[in-house]
């Protein structure tokens, strides 16, 4: 109860602090440079001044927070990658030399590439297929809602859910993991799935695909509905069958949306961390960059130099998408 009370008080203080800043600063501005009354010349001058200042009152906290939490750390990470484990001593490129000489890095890099190829492809594919089919049946919305549901589940929760499915009992004990039970039912040999090198990566990927398919489905379904009916009617009149209509008429029209879904999931995949941490913690050849980075941050008291180097690899992989996004946003702004 005490915890709840103090939590409520701190919550209120935090939220109030924010509100007070915005109200207070704007009211202060109006007090110092009054624009409602006074000699016309002075009002005009005050109006000019307050119009110059006010955007920065509005933007101030956001700019400060973005600078402190995102912009400055990116720069500092680059700097730290040239420093030793505590970040005090300049060590040149030795962290990079270590990185490109370490097997663990190549293992994570290979796994990350696998994730990058498999997860966005599978999630987008399933999303598209499900979106197309659910649009044609009367209970489509219920189906969509259920397939969308894993989106709300945390990665760690999803990991527990799937670890239970992959659970393995040795010897002749009854299998309580669904996957092994199915395998046994069909006469197969039960396996400890998440310890089988290489293939275990795919068992981890299934979790993220399970989560992300709903996202792909929702967005692609909206895009499919946006396709003008005339194009489809024209194709039907020309005698196209369902498959032809899907691949030659519908898919090309939503190509842009598919790209957006794909890149969004790609970025998520690059940062995937919780699932690997919870399922294997990188054992049995399942390491990925984000988990390796986290590992180095704390391993043996933490090696900030090496952690930063791994982070930079992730960043470099994201940069092409970042540039593409900015270009797209700029094009949109001009169109407005």
């Amino acid at each position: 109860m005490a915890q709840l009370a103090s939590a409520l008080v701190t919550m209120l203080l935090g939220v109030l602090g924010c509100a007070v800043y915005f109200y207070g600063s704007n009211i202060l501005l109006d007090k110092v440079f009054p624009t409602k009354s006074g000699p016309a010349q002075k009002v005009a001058r005050n109006l000019r001044i307050s119009n110059t200042i006010r955007p920065w009152l509005f933007l101030g906290p956001a700019v400060l927070l973005l600078t402190f939490y995102l912009f400055y750390p990116v720069i500092d990470s680059i700097r730290l990658s040239f420093f030793d484990r505590s970040g005090d001593e300049f060590v040149g490129i030795s962290n990079y030399v270590w990185l490109f000489g370490s097997d663990e890095f190549f293992e994570s890099f290979r796994n990350n590439m696998l994730w990058l190829i498999v997860v966005p492809t599978a999630a987008t594919f399933f999303g598209l297929v499900i979106a197309t089919m659910t649009d044609r049946i009367w209970w489509g919305n219920i189906a969509k809602s259920l397939i969308f549901m894993p989106m709300a589940i945390s990665f760690i929760g999803a990991s527990v859910i799937w670890k239970f499915i992959y659970d393995f009992r040795s010897g002749g004990d009854a299998q309580i993991g669904l996957l092994n039970a199915v395998v046994v039912f069909f006469g197969g040999e039960p396996q400890n799935w998440i310890t089988i090198p290489f293939w275990n990566n795919f068992f981890l990927m299934i979790i993220l695909i399970w989560i992300q398919t709903g996202f792909a489905m929702v967005i692609l379904s909206a895009a499919l509905r946006g396709i003008p009916d005339e194009t489809i009617e024209a194709a039907v009149l020309d005698g196209a069958n369902g498959v032809q209509i899907f691949f030659k008429i519908m898919v090309p029209q939503i190509w842009g949306t598919i790209a957006v879904v794909w890149t969004t999931i790609t970025i998520l995949v690059l940062k995937v961390f919780d699932i690997v941490l919870a399922m294997t913690n990188g054992q049995w050849d399942t390491q990925v960059l984000a988990n390796q980075m986290f590992d180095w941050m704390f391993r043996g008291g933490g090696d900030f130099g090496r952690g930063a180097v791994v982070a930079i690899v992730i960043m470099v992989l994201v940069i092409p998408i970042m540039i593409w996004n900015i270009k797209r946003a700029n094009a949109e702004m001009e169109g407005r």
Binding site: V63, L70, M322
Partner: peptide
């Protein structure tokens, strides 16, 4: 315009980039 572009750019910055400097 620059700020808008910066926001779009920061949209995809991986959290991992921020962790170590922020921890410090």
């Amino acid at each position: 315009a620059l700020l808008v572009a910066a926001v779009v750019g920061l949209l995809v910055v991986p959290l991992q980039m921020s962790l170590i400097p922020l921890l410090k």
